[in-house]
Design a binder for these strands. Structure first.
Lengths: 216, 216
DNA sequence: GTAGGATATTACTCATCGGTAAGTTTTGTA
DNA sequence: TACAAAACTTACCGATGAGTAATATCCTAC
Protein backbone atom coordinates (compact mmCIF):
# COMPACT_ATOMS: atom_id res chain seq x y z
CA UNK A 1 0.00 0.00 0.00
CA UNK A 2 1.34 3.31 -1.05
CA UNK A 3 1.04 6.04 1.49
CA UNK A 4 0.06 9.28 -0.10
CA UNK A 5 2.43 11.80 1.36
CA UNK A 6 2.21 15.17 -0.25
CA UNK A 7 4.92 17.51 0.90
CA UNK A 8 3.72 20.08 3.35
CA UNK A 9 0.58 18.19 4.25
CA UNK A 10 0.21 16.33 7.51
CA UNK A 11 1.36 12.87 6.75
CA UNK A 12 -1.29 10.77 8.39
CA UNK A 13 -4.72 12.14 7.56
CA UNK A 14 -5.36 12.08 3.87
CA UNK A 15 -8.65 13.35 2.60
CA UNK A 16 -9.92 9.82 2.72
CA UNK A 17 -9.06 9.34 6.29
CA UNK A 18 -10.86 12.47 7.23
CA UNK A 19 -13.94 11.53 5.28
CA UNK A 20 -13.92 8.14 6.85
CA UNK A 21 -13.77 9.57 10.37
CA UNK A 22 -16.58 11.95 9.51
CA UNK A 23 -18.75 9.16 8.19
CA UNK A 24 -17.99 7.03 11.16
CA UNK A 25 -19.14 9.85 13.38
CA UNK A 26 -22.31 10.12 11.35
CA UNK A 27 -22.94 6.42 11.85
CA UNK A 28 -22.49 6.77 15.58
CA UNK A 29 -24.65 9.84 15.86
CA UNK A 30 -27.39 8.29 13.76
CA UNK A 31 -27.25 5.18 15.88
CA UNK A 32 -27.51 7.25 19.03
CA UNK A 33 -30.61 8.98 17.75
CA UNK A 34 -32.14 5.69 16.66
CA UNK A 35 -31.42 4.01 19.99
CA UNK A 36 -32.86 7.00 21.72
CA UNK A 37 -36.09 6.74 19.79
CA UNK A 38 -36.63 3.03 19.84
CA UNK A 39 -34.37 1.55 22.46
CA UNK A 40 -31.26 -0.48 21.85
CA UNK A 41 -32.78 -3.86 21.22
CA UNK A 42 -35.70 -2.58 19.24
CA UNK A 43 -33.33 -0.86 16.86
CA UNK A 44 -31.80 -3.17 14.29
CA UNK A 45 -28.69 -2.38 12.34
CA UNK A 46 -30.88 -2.42 9.28
CA UNK A 47 -32.82 0.45 10.80
CA UNK A 48 -29.68 2.42 11.38
CA UNK A 49 -28.42 1.66 7.90
CA UNK A 50 -31.73 2.75 6.44
CA UNK A 51 -31.61 5.99 8.38
CA UNK A 52 -28.21 6.62 6.83
CA UNK A 53 -29.40 5.64 3.37
CA UNK A 54 -27.03 2.69 3.12
CA UNK A 55 -27.16 -1.04 3.74
CA UNK A 56 -26.22 -3.00 6.80
CA UNK A 57 -22.78 -4.20 5.74
CA UNK A 58 -21.80 -0.61 5.16
CA UNK A 59 -22.45 0.08 8.79
CA UNK A 60 -20.19 -2.83 9.62
CA UNK A 61 -17.60 -1.24 7.42
CA UNK A 62 -17.40 1.64 9.87
CA UNK A 63 -17.97 -0.08 13.14
CA UNK A 64 -17.14 -3.54 14.40
CA UNK A 65 -20.46 -4.57 15.80
CA UNK A 66 -23.55 -3.39 17.59
CA UNK A 67 -21.96 -3.46 21.02
CA UNK A 68 -19.11 -1.30 19.85
CA UNK A 69 -21.59 1.09 18.33
CA UNK A 70 -23.38 1.52 21.62
CA UNK A 71 -20.06 1.89 23.37
CA UNK A 72 -19.06 4.75 21.11
CA UNK A 73 -22.32 6.49 21.92
CA UNK A 74 -21.70 5.99 25.61
CA UNK A 75 -18.26 7.41 25.32
CA UNK A 76 -19.27 10.37 23.21
CA UNK A 77 -21.79 11.35 25.83
CA UNK A 78 -19.68 10.73 28.88
CA UNK A 79 -16.91 12.78 27.37
CA UNK A 80 -19.10 15.85 27.64
CA UNK A 81 -19.35 15.44 31.38
CA UNK A 82 -15.70 14.61 31.84
CA UNK A 83 -14.89 17.78 29.97
CA UNK A 84 -16.87 19.67 32.58
CA UNK A 85 -14.97 18.05 35.40
CA UNK A 86 -11.63 18.79 33.78
CA UNK A 87 -12.72 22.35 33.15
CA UNK A 88 -13.09 23.17 36.82
CA UNK A 89 -10.25 21.05 38.02
CA UNK A 90 -7.63 23.66 38.62
CA UNK A 91 -10.03 26.47 39.39
CA UNK A 92 -9.88 28.36 42.65
CA UNK A 93 -13.60 29.06 42.78
CA UNK A 94 -15.58 27.85 45.76
CA UNK A 95 -16.40 24.22 45.22
CA UNK A 96 -20.10 24.83 44.95
CA UNK A 97 -19.61 27.13 42.01
CA UNK A 98 -17.41 24.55 40.40
CA UNK A 99 -20.13 22.02 40.99
CA UNK A 100 -22.67 24.32 39.40
CA UNK A 101 -20.47 24.54 36.36
CA UNK A 102 -20.22 20.78 36.17
CA UNK A 103 -23.99 20.58 36.42
CA UNK A 104 -24.24 22.82 33.38
CA UNK A 105 -21.95 20.63 31.35
CA UNK A 106 -23.74 17.57 32.59
CA UNK A 107 -27.15 18.88 31.59
CA UNK A 108 -25.97 19.71 28.10
CA UNK A 109 -24.46 16.27 27.70
CA UNK A 110 -27.53 14.35 28.75
CA UNK A 111 -29.78 16.53 26.61
CA UNK A 112 -27.65 15.72 23.57
CA UNK A 113 -28.18 12.93 21.07
CA UNK A 114 -26.05 10.72 23.25
CA UNK A 115 -28.00 11.33 26.42
CA UNK A 116 -30.14 8.28 26.07
CA UNK A 117 -27.26 5.92 25.47
CA UNK A 118 -25.38 7.36 28.38
CA UNK A 119 -28.10 7.15 30.96
CA UNK A 120 -30.77 4.75 29.80
CA UNK A 121 -28.93 2.03 27.95
CA UNK A 122 -28.11 -0.91 30.14
CA UNK A 123 -24.48 -1.60 30.85
CA UNK A 124 -25.17 -5.25 30.25
CA UNK A 125 -25.91 -4.52 26.63
CA UNK A 126 -22.25 -3.89 26.19
CA UNK A 127 -20.28 -7.04 26.71
CA UNK A 128 -18.56 -7.74 30.02
CA UNK A 129 -15.45 -6.08 28.64
CA UNK A 130 -16.89 -2.81 27.43
CA UNK A 131 -19.36 -2.92 30.26
CA UNK A 132 -16.55 -2.75 32.76
CA UNK A 133 -14.94 0.05 30.84
CA UNK A 134 -18.08 2.15 30.86
CA UNK A 135 -18.67 1.39 34.49
CA UNK A 136 -15.23 2.76 35.21
CA UNK A 137 -15.91 5.95 33.32
CA UNK A 138 -19.17 6.42 35.16
CA UNK A 139 -17.57 5.74 38.50
CA UNK A 140 -14.98 8.36 37.71
CA UNK A 141 -17.69 10.93 37.11
CA UNK A 142 -19.41 9.98 40.31
CA UNK A 143 -16.16 10.34 42.20
CA UNK A 144 -15.59 13.74 40.65
CA UNK A 145 -18.95 15.03 41.78
CA UNK A 146 -18.66 13.51 45.19
CA UNK A 147 -15.25 15.06 45.63
CA UNK A 148 -16.57 18.48 44.71
CA UNK A 149 -19.29 18.10 47.31
CA UNK A 150 -16.77 17.13 49.95
CA UNK A 151 -14.59 20.02 48.95
CA UNK A 152 -17.55 22.32 49.20
CA UNK A 153 -18.35 21.11 52.69
CA UNK A 154 -14.75 21.74 53.61
CA UNK A 155 -14.57 25.24 52.16
CA UNK A 156 -17.96 26.16 53.57
CA UNK A 157 -19.71 26.67 50.25
CA UNK A 158 -21.88 23.59 50.77
CA UNK A 159 -23.85 22.63 53.84
CA UNK A 160 -22.58 19.44 55.46
CA UNK A 161 -24.45 16.49 54.03
CA UNK A 162 -24.02 12.91 52.88
CA UNK A 163 -21.84 13.34 49.78
CA UNK A 164 -22.70 9.96 48.36
CA UNK A 165 -26.45 10.36 48.58
CA UNK A 166 -26.29 13.93 47.41
CA UNK A 167 -24.20 13.00 44.40
CA UNK A 168 -26.64 10.21 43.55
CA UNK A 169 -29.58 12.54 43.85
CA UNK A 170 -28.01 15.15 41.62
CA UNK A 171 -26.81 12.66 39.04
CA UNK A 172 -30.23 11.03 39.00
CA UNK A 173 -32.06 14.28 38.48
CA UNK A 174 -29.69 15.17 35.66
CA UNK A 175 -29.73 11.76 34.04
CA UNK A 176 -33.49 11.84 33.93
CA UNK A 177 -33.28 14.82 31.60
CA UNK A 178 -32.31 12.37 28.89
CA UNK A 179 -35.64 10.69 29.45
CA UNK A 180 -37.90 13.65 29.02
CA UNK A 181 -35.98 16.26 27.10
CA UNK A 182 -36.67 16.38 23.40
CA UNK A 183 -35.66 18.92 20.83
CA UNK A 184 -38.35 21.43 20.21
CA UNK A 185 -38.92 21.73 23.94
CA UNK A 186 -39.75 25.31 24.88
CA UNK A 187 -36.67 25.42 27.10
CA UNK A 188 -33.14 25.08 25.88
CA UNK A 189 -30.85 22.64 27.69
CA UNK A 190 -28.95 25.61 29.09
CA UNK A 191 -32.14 26.99 30.61
CA UNK A 192 -32.98 23.63 32.09
CA UNK A 193 -29.50 23.54 33.55
CA UNK A 194 -30.05 26.86 35.31
CA UNK A 195 -33.27 25.65 36.88
CA UNK A 196 -31.48 22.62 38.14
CA UNK A 197 -28.62 24.65 39.53
CA UNK A 198 -31.15 26.78 41.36
CA UNK A 199 -33.01 23.79 42.73
CA UNK A 200 -29.86 22.01 43.78
CA UNK A 201 -28.74 25.16 45.49
CA UNK A 202 -31.76 26.14 47.51
CA UNK A 203 -34.12 23.22 47.59
CA UNK A 204 -37.80 23.59 48.20
CA UNK A 205 -37.95 25.36 51.51
CA UNK A 206 -38.90 28.99 51.64
CA UNK A 207 -35.82 31.13 51.93
CA UNK A 208 -35.29 33.21 54.92
CA UNK A 209 -32.79 35.85 54.09
CA UNK A 210 -29.60 34.28 53.07
CA UNK A 211 -26.08 35.48 52.43
CA UNK A 212 -25.84 37.56 49.30
CA UNK A 213 -23.15 35.49 47.66
CA UNK A 214 -24.97 33.68 44.93
CA UNK A 215 -25.00 33.88 41.20
CA UNK A 216 -28.18 34.17 39.22
CA UNK B 1 -60.90 -19.65 53.61
CA UNK B 2 -63.70 -19.19 51.19
CA UNK B 3 -63.63 -15.56 50.38
CA UNK B 4 -65.94 -14.43 47.68
CA UNK B 5 -64.87 -11.15 46.20
CA UNK B 6 -68.21 -10.07 44.84
CA UNK B 7 -71.59 -11.35 46.01
CA UNK B 8 -73.71 -13.38 43.70
CA UNK B 9 -71.50 -14.35 40.78
CA UNK B 10 -68.34 -16.25 41.63
CA UNK B 11 -69.12 -19.41 43.49
CA UNK B 12 -66.24 -21.23 41.95
CA UNK B 13 -63.59 -22.68 44.18
CA UNK B 14 -61.87 -19.92 46.00
CA UNK B 15 -58.84 -21.71 47.32
CA UNK B 16 -57.78 -22.37 43.79
CA UNK B 17 -58.36 -18.84 42.75
CA UNK B 18 -56.30 -17.61 45.61
CA UNK B 19 -53.49 -20.02 44.90
CA UNK B 20 -53.56 -19.02 41.30
CA UNK B 21 -53.40 -15.34 42.15
CA UNK B 22 -50.54 -16.02 44.52
CA UNK B 23 -48.61 -17.93 41.91
CA UNK B 24 -49.30 -15.28 39.34
CA UNK B 25 -47.87 -12.73 41.71
CA UNK B 26 -44.83 -14.91 42.18
CA UNK B 27 -44.37 -15.05 38.43
CA UNK B 28 -44.59 -11.30 38.17
CA UNK B 29 -42.24 -10.67 41.05
CA UNK B 30 -39.71 -13.16 39.75
CA UNK B 31 -39.91 -11.56 36.34
CA UNK B 32 -39.35 -8.16 37.87
CA UNK B 33 -36.23 -9.34 39.62
CA UNK B 34 -34.96 -11.04 36.49
CA UNK B 35 -35.58 -7.97 34.33
CA UNK B 36 -33.88 -5.89 36.93
CA UNK B 37 -30.79 -8.03 36.83
CA UNK B 38 -30.46 -8.60 33.15
CA UNK B 39 -32.66 -6.12 31.37
CA UNK B 40 -35.90 -6.83 29.60
CA UNK B 41 -34.60 -8.10 26.31
CA UNK B 42 -31.71 -10.03 27.77
CA UNK B 43 -34.13 -11.95 29.95
CA UNK B 44 -35.93 -14.77 28.18
CA UNK B 45 -39.08 -16.34 29.44
CA UNK B 46 -37.07 -19.52 29.81
CA UNK B 47 -34.89 -17.66 32.29
CA UNK B 48 -37.89 -16.57 34.27
CA UNK B 49 -39.38 -20.03 34.16
CA UNK B 50 -36.11 -21.51 35.34
CA UNK B 51 -35.93 -19.05 38.21
CA UNK B 52 -39.37 -20.26 39.24
CA UNK B 53 -38.44 -23.89 38.81
CA UNK B 54 -40.96 -24.47 36.04
CA UNK B 55 -40.99 -24.46 32.27
CA UNK B 56 -41.88 -21.72 29.87
CA UNK B 57 -45.43 -22.75 28.99
CA UNK B 58 -46.27 -22.67 32.68
CA UNK B 59 -45.38 -19.01 32.72
CA UNK B 60 -47.73 -18.53 29.80
CA UNK B 61 -50.37 -20.24 31.83
CA UNK B 62 -50.26 -17.37 34.30
CA UNK B 63 -49.60 -14.47 32.02
CA UNK B 64 -50.56 -13.75 28.45
CA UNK B 65 -47.21 -12.76 27.06
CA UNK B 66 -43.98 -11.00 27.77
CA UNK B 67 -45.38 -7.53 27.23
CA UNK B 68 -48.15 -8.16 29.67
CA UNK B 69 -45.64 -9.43 32.16
CA UNK B 70 -43.66 -6.24 31.98
CA UNK B 71 -46.84 -4.26 32.22
CA UNK B 72 -47.80 -5.98 35.45
CA UNK B 73 -44.40 -5.11 36.87
CA UNK B 74 -44.85 -1.52 35.82
CA UNK B 75 -48.20 -1.37 37.44
CA UNK B 76 -47.16 -3.06 40.65
CA UNK B 77 -44.44 -0.49 41.09
CA UNK B 78 -46.42 2.55 40.11
CA UNK B 79 -49.14 1.53 42.50
CA UNK B 80 -46.76 2.13 45.38
CA UNK B 81 -46.33 5.74 44.37
CA UNK B 82 -49.98 6.28 43.67
CA UNK B 83 -50.72 4.96 47.13
CA UNK B 84 -48.49 7.70 48.49
CA UNK B 85 -50.34 10.35 46.55
CA UNK B 86 -53.71 9.07 47.70
CA UNK B 87 -52.43 8.91 51.25
CA UNK B 88 -51.83 12.64 51.49
CA UNK B 89 -54.74 13.67 49.34
CA UNK B 90 -57.16 14.80 51.98
CA UNK B 91 -54.57 15.84 54.51
CA UNK B 92 -54.46 19.34 55.87
CA UNK B 93 -50.69 19.37 56.36
CA UNK B 94 -48.63 22.00 54.59
CA UNK B 95 -48.07 20.87 51.04
CA UNK B 96 -44.34 20.48 51.50
CA UNK B 97 -44.86 17.96 54.25
CA UNK B 98 -47.27 16.10 52.07
CA UNK B 99 -44.68 16.15 49.35
CA UNK B 100 -42.09 14.77 51.75
CA UNK B 101 -44.43 11.94 52.52
CA UNK B 102 -44.90 11.19 48.86
CA UNK B 103 -41.14 11.19 48.44
CA UNK B 104 -40.91 8.52 51.11
CA UNK B 105 -43.45 6.32 49.36
CA UNK B 106 -41.76 6.98 46.06
CA UNK B 107 -38.34 5.99 47.34
CA UNK B 108 -39.66 2.75 48.75
CA UNK B 109 -41.39 1.92 45.51
CA UNK B 110 -38.37 2.49 43.30
CA UNK B 111 -36.12 0.58 45.67
CA UNK B 112 -38.46 -2.41 45.47
CA UNK B 113 -38.23 -5.33 43.08
CA UNK B 114 -40.37 -3.38 40.66
CA UNK B 115 -38.21 -0.28 40.67
CA UNK B 116 -36.27 -1.23 37.61
CA UNK B 117 -39.33 -2.02 35.53
CA UNK B 118 -40.95 1.19 36.58
CA UNK B 119 -38.12 3.52 35.82
CA UNK B 120 -35.66 1.85 33.51
CA UNK B 121 -37.75 -0.29 31.20
CA UNK B 122 -38.61 1.47 28.00
CA UNK B 123 -42.24 2.29 27.40
CA UNK B 124 -41.77 1.10 23.85
CA UNK B 125 -41.19 -2.42 25.10
CA UNK B 126 -44.83 -2.53 25.96
CA UNK B 127 -46.96 -2.38 22.86
CA UNK B 128 -48.53 0.88 21.74
CA UNK B 129 -51.62 -0.02 23.73
CA UNK B 130 -50.05 -0.80 27.09
CA UNK B 131 -47.44 1.82 26.41
CA UNK B 132 -50.10 4.49 26.34
CA UNK B 133 -51.65 3.13 29.47
CA UNK B 134 -48.40 3.27 31.40
CA UNK B 135 -47.67 6.71 30.05
CA UNK B 136 -50.98 7.83 31.46
CA UNK B 137 -50.22 6.41 34.88
CA UNK B 138 -46.84 8.10 34.89
CA UNK B 139 -48.31 11.38 33.79
CA UNK B 140 -50.78 11.15 36.62
CA UNK B 141 -47.97 10.78 39.12
CA UNK B 142 -46.14 13.70 37.59
CA UNK B 143 -49.26 15.81 37.82
CA UNK B 144 -49.71 14.82 41.43
CA UNK B 145 -46.22 15.93 42.39
CA UNK B 146 -46.44 19.09 40.37
CA UNK B 147 -49.71 19.95 41.99
CA UNK B 148 -48.24 19.49 45.44
CA UNK B 149 -45.43 21.85 44.54
CA UNK B 150 -47.89 24.44 43.31
CA UNK B 151 -49.94 24.00 46.40
CA UNK B 152 -46.82 24.45 48.50
CA UNK B 153 -45.94 27.65 46.74
CA UNK B 154 -49.46 28.87 47.38
CA UNK B 155 -49.49 27.98 51.08
CA UNK B 156 -45.99 29.30 51.61
CA UNK B 157 -44.38 26.02 52.52
CA UNK B 158 -42.37 25.93 49.31
CA UNK B 159 -40.28 28.70 47.79
CA UNK B 160 -41.65 29.89 44.43
CA UNK B 161 -40.02 27.91 41.62
CA UNK B 162 -40.73 26.26 38.31
CA UNK B 163 -43.03 23.39 39.33
CA UNK B 164 -42.45 21.43 36.17
CA UNK B 165 -38.67 21.47 36.32
CA UNK B 166 -38.69 20.89 40.04
CA UNK B 167 -40.97 17.90 39.69
CA UNK B 168 -38.75 16.48 36.95
CA UNK B 169 -35.66 16.96 39.06
CA UNK B 170 -37.19 15.26 42.05
CA UNK B 171 -38.66 12.40 40.05
CA UNK B 172 -35.36 11.91 38.29
CA UNK B 173 -33.36 11.78 41.48
CA UNK B 174 -35.82 9.27 42.93
CA UNK B 175 -36.07 7.15 39.81
CA UNK B 176 -32.32 6.83 39.73
CA UNK B 177 -32.48 5.01 43.04
CA UNK B 178 -33.72 2.01 41.09
CA UNK B 179 -30.48 2.11 39.17
CA UNK B 180 -28.06 2.01 42.06
CA UNK B 181 -29.94 0.63 45.02
CA UNK B 182 -29.41 -3.05 45.69
CA UNK B 183 -30.41 -5.11 48.64
CA UNK B 184 -27.61 -5.50 51.09
CA UNK B 185 -26.82 -1.83 50.76
CA UNK B 186 -25.74 -0.39 54.12
CA UNK B 187 -28.69 2.00 54.03
CA UNK B 188 -32.30 0.95 54.06
CA UNK B 189 -34.63 2.50 51.49
CA UNK B 190 -36.26 4.45 54.30
CA UNK B 191 -32.93 5.97 55.25
CA UNK B 192 -32.21 6.86 51.66
CA UNK B 193 -35.62 8.49 51.53
CA UNK B 194 -34.78 10.70 54.50
CA UNK B 195 -31.56 11.87 52.91
CA UNK B 196 -33.46 12.75 49.79
CA UNK B 197 -36.13 14.60 51.74
CA UNK B 198 -33.39 16.59 53.41
CA UNK B 199 -31.64 17.37 50.16
CA UNK B 200 -34.84 18.34 48.41
CA UNK B 201 -35.69 20.56 51.31
CA UNK B 202 -32.51 22.52 51.80
CA UNK B 203 -30.33 21.99 48.79
CA UNK B 204 -26.61 22.45 48.86
CA UNK B 205 -26.18 25.97 50.13
CA UNK B 206 -25.00 26.56 53.64
CA UNK B 207 -27.95 27.32 55.87
CA UNK B 208 -26.37 29.78 58.17
CA UNK B 209 -24.91 32.94 56.93
CA UNK B 210 -21.38 32.29 56.03
CA UNK B 211 -19.00 33.58 53.46
CA UNK B 212 -19.06 31.22 50.52
CA UNK B 213 -15.45 31.85 49.65
CA UNK B 214 -13.08 30.62 52.24
CA UNK B 215 -10.55 27.92 52.03
CA UNK B 216 -10.16 25.33 54.70
C1' DG C 1 -61.85 -44.24 43.40
C1' DT C 2 -62.80 -41.81 39.61
C1' DA C 3 -64.37 -37.96 36.37
C1' DG C 4 -63.01 -33.67 34.87
C1' DG C 5 -61.04 -29.40 35.35
C1' DA C 6 -56.59 -27.23 36.73
C1' DT C 7 -51.78 -27.36 36.21
C1' DA C 8 -47.63 -28.40 34.10
C1' DT C 9 -44.51 -30.56 30.34
C1' DT C 10 -42.37 -32.00 25.88
C1' DA C 11 -41.52 -30.85 21.53
C1' DC C 12 -42.13 -28.16 18.25
C1' DT C 13 -42.79 -23.51 14.72
C1' DC C 14 -41.34 -19.35 12.98
C1' DA C 15 -39.83 -14.62 12.62
C1' DT C 16 -36.15 -11.65 13.65
C1' DC C 17 -31.71 -9.99 13.54
C1' DG C 18 -26.69 -9.91 14.28
C1' DG C 19 -23.12 -11.02 11.58
C1' DT C 20 -20.42 -12.52 7.19
C1' DA C 21 -18.74 -14.07 2.50
C1' DA C 22 -18.20 -12.79 -1.89
C1' DG C 23 -18.85 -9.84 -5.38
C1' DT C 24 -19.65 -4.93 -7.62
C1' DT C 25 -19.05 -0.04 -8.10
C1' DT C 26 -16.56 4.15 -7.12
C1' DT C 27 -12.48 7.01 -6.61
C1' DG C 28 -7.97 8.68 -6.20
C1' DT C 29 -3.48 8.37 -8.20
C1' DA C 30 0.16 7.50 -11.58
C1' DT D 1 -6.41 5.06 -19.42
C1' DA D 2 -5.15 1.51 -16.02
C1' DC D 3 -5.60 -0.27 -11.73
C1' DA D 4 -5.64 -0.89 -6.94
C1' DA D 5 -7.62 0.33 -2.78
C1' DA D 6 -11.83 2.01 -0.70
C1' DA D 7 -16.71 1.97 -0.35
C1' DC D 8 -20.75 -0.33 -0.80
C1' DT D 9 -24.22 -4.15 -2.09
C1' DT D 10 -26.57 -8.64 -2.66
C1' DA D 11 -27.49 -12.75 -0.69
C1' DC D 12 -26.93 -15.57 2.62
C1' DC D 13 -26.19 -18.20 7.62
C1' DG D 14 -27.18 -19.46 12.33
C1' DA D 15 -28.71 -18.57 16.83
C1' DT D 16 -31.95 -17.02 19.75
C1' DG D 17 -36.21 -16.67 21.79
C1' DA D 18 -41.34 -15.67 21.71
C1' DG D 19 -45.20 -18.17 21.39
C1' DT D 20 -48.09 -22.69 20.64
C1' DA D 21 -50.08 -27.33 20.00
C1' DA D 22 -50.57 -31.73 21.95
C1' DT D 23 -50.02 -34.35 25.91
C1' DA D 24 -49.29 -35.86 30.56
C1' DT D 25 -50.04 -35.32 35.69
C1' DC D 26 -52.21 -33.60 39.70
C1' DC D 27 -56.30 -32.31 42.66
C1' DT D 28 -60.63 -31.99 44.33
C1' DA D 29 -65.63 -32.78 44.37
C1' DC D 30 -68.78 -36.25 44.16
Amino acid sequence: MIADVSPGQPRWPSRRHRDRALKRDAVIRTAARAFSRGGFHQTSLDDIAAALGVTKPTVYYYVENKEQLLFECFQAGLEGIRAGLRQVEGSSLPAREKLDEVVRYYALAVASDFGWCMTRAEDQDLGPELGRHVKKLKAEIDRGIRRLIEEGIADGSIEPCDPKMTAFAMAGALNWIAHWYREGQPMTPAQVAERFVAFFGHGLLPRRRRSASQRA
